[in-house]
Amino acid sequence: MPKQSGDHTGTRIQEQRRLAGLTQRALAERIPYSYSWLTQVECGARPASVDFTAAVARALRIDVTVLTGQPYVTQLQEDRLAELVRPIREALDLYDLGDDSLVTARTVAELVSAAEELCARVRATRLHAAAVALPDVMTELTALCWRSPTTDLWRALASTYRTAHDISVKLGYYDLATVALDRLGWAAERAGDPCLAAMRQYFRGLVYFREGEYSIGLRLIRSGHGLLGQDGSSRAALTVAGQLHLGGSVLAARAGQAGLATDHIARAREHAERVGDASRVHWLNFGSTNVDLHEMSVAMEMRQYDEALRQAKAIRLPASIATSRRAHYFMDRARVELELGRSEASLKSMVAARRSAPEQTRYHPGARETIRGLVHLSRRAPEPLRAMATWIGM
């Protein structure tokens, strides 16, 4: 059976609580969870769910990564992903340095196509391949934007910044993800594209979803809708608006605003009915299936686990759905099944997530906590669980 490491989210919460001079009861009074829940998490008897960790981080006024231990450097080094982060960071820092005569750039058409391919690779969770190719594409586009700027070039450069954000988030480098979002805003302004600017607000809202500051996240969602303004009737604008509503739904659910969450889901569904399958519009994966997945997430975030599982069972994922969304569905379902004491089903869902997107699953903090919870519940862990725990870094 895998050994329960003493270095996990629960022990980090205990350490940070003590550094803040708080007893367990004092901390429990500051979060929407019971004293019993907190004590179980700290001793490793209960997994630290993403929402629980966010609540503690907010109460202690620290970054959530202090508690999750991200980025998971050991596993990143094993997968040779850590060495790819620095080139991305350096390419992001070229934005305001002007043209570089030493850069030989591909044609505009080739670079626009390369930027699109990077988005496709991330959606397919081919993170290593995307991270390898990204710095060169970003560097060449930056040079071309300074040499002969056009709207198409600025949009393509903005797309690479979005890809840098997505890769950084999935690998746990949230500081780098914030830099990428700043660059996205810079390029969106030069492209004169309100959809890109609104998308940036959506991603910024998700930062506060992760950090537990839901009121700020909801303000960013409203800001995103405002940026779309009068140009809100195009297919692209409707798609971005729909995605903003999906972001608003889970933020509202975390904030305990059930009515607002329901309203956001209803508005998103209206947009999905109007645009149809818009999964490739800005690569947001927007469509009716994504609305269903977020409706399930709303129930889960509000701890309505029976309802969340009912919805999960009713969802039929189309073959065309992005691999990243498929894996996320299985990870969410595994968490719900664990909360309901369905260990065998939870493990099956985690295996499905790993099979769908191994890189994404290995670096997702929620996946780690679910596996930890399954290990704790097992008197004698079955071989698939032992293998999963070893693979994920326990």
Rank of each mutant, 00 (worst) to 15 (best):
M302T: 12
E307M: 10
Y208P: 02
E344K: 14
E307P: 00
F209S: 00
A266P: 09
V56Q: 03
L60Q: 02
H165Y: 15
E270M: 05
G287A: 12
T163M: 08
R61C: 09
D277Q: 03
S223V: 01
I167P: 00
T53W: 01
K313Q: 10
R379E: 14
R18Y: 10
L377M: 13
R326F: 02
T23R: 12
R267A: 08
P47N: 13
T151K: 11
M296F: 06
A124S: 14
R303D: 11
S101W: 14
T289R: 03
P2A: 09
S101D: 13
D136L: 14
L27P: 00
T289V: 13
W391I: 01
V281P: 03
W283F: 11
Y305V: 06
L127R: 06
Y208C: 04
S349E: 07
G393R: 08
L340M: 15
T11A: 15
I371Q: 00
S49R: 06
L97N: 12
V298Y: 00
E301L: 13
I265H: 01
R204K: 07
V108G: 05
M350A: 09
G373F: 01
M1T: 13
E140F: 04
V207W: 11
Q230A: 09
T107R: 11
G217E: 10
A381S: 14
P71T: 06
P87R: 09
V108W: 04
W283M: 08
S233P: 04
G247A: 12
V351D: 10
V250Q: 03
A266K: 13
E110I: 06
E211L: 05
M296L: 15
R354A: 03
T390W: 11
Q230K: 12
E337R: 04
P382K: 06
M1C: 13
V50D: 10
V137H: 03
C195R: 04
L228C: 03
A120V: 04
V66L: 15
T74Y: 01
E383R: 15
E301F: 11
A241N: 07
T39L: 11
G242F: 00
G98R: 02
